[in-house]
Amino acid sequence: MTDVSLTQPALPRAAQRPRTWPRVAAAAVALLATWALYVTWDTFVRTGSGQSVDQLALDGAARGQGRLWELAEPVLGVVSTTFVGLALAVAVVLALVRRRWWLAAQVVVLVVGANLTTQVLKYVVLDRPALLDVPRADVNTLPSGHTTVAASVAAGLLVAVPRRWRPVVAVAGAGFTAATGVSTLVGQWHRPSDVVAGVLVVLAWGALTCALGSPSSLDRPQDGGTAATAGAAALLLVGAAVSGAVALGALGGAGGTAWGLPTGGGLTAYMGGVLGVVAVTLAASATLLLVRQATARPAT
Rank of each mutant, 00 (worst) to 15 (best):
V139C: 00
S217E: 14
P262H: 02
Q119G: 12
W41Y: 15
R166T: 06
A204C: 08
S5K: 11
L32M: 13
L71V: 11
R63H: 14
P167L: 02
T209W: 08
W189A: 12
A87S: 12
L212R: 13
R13C: 05
G48L: 13
A30L: 11
T287G: 12
T117A: 15
A137T: 09
G256M: 07
A247P: 09
Q65K: 11
R99E: 11
L86W: 05
V242A: 14
A234F: 13
N115V: 10
L200Y: 11
L200A: 07
G252Q: 09
W41L: 03
A155K: 08
G256A: 08
T82M: 05
D54I: 04
V277D: 12
Y38L: 13
A269Y: 01
D127A: 07
V109W: 13
V291Q: 09
L237A: 10
G187E: 15
D223H: 12
A72C: 01
A15T: 07
V171G: 02
G64H: 11
E73V: 01
S80H: 06
L121T: 06
L158W: 11
T7A: 14
G272Q: 12
A155R: 06
T40R: 04
V238H: 09
L132K: 09
V39L: 14
A160N: 05
V195Q: 01
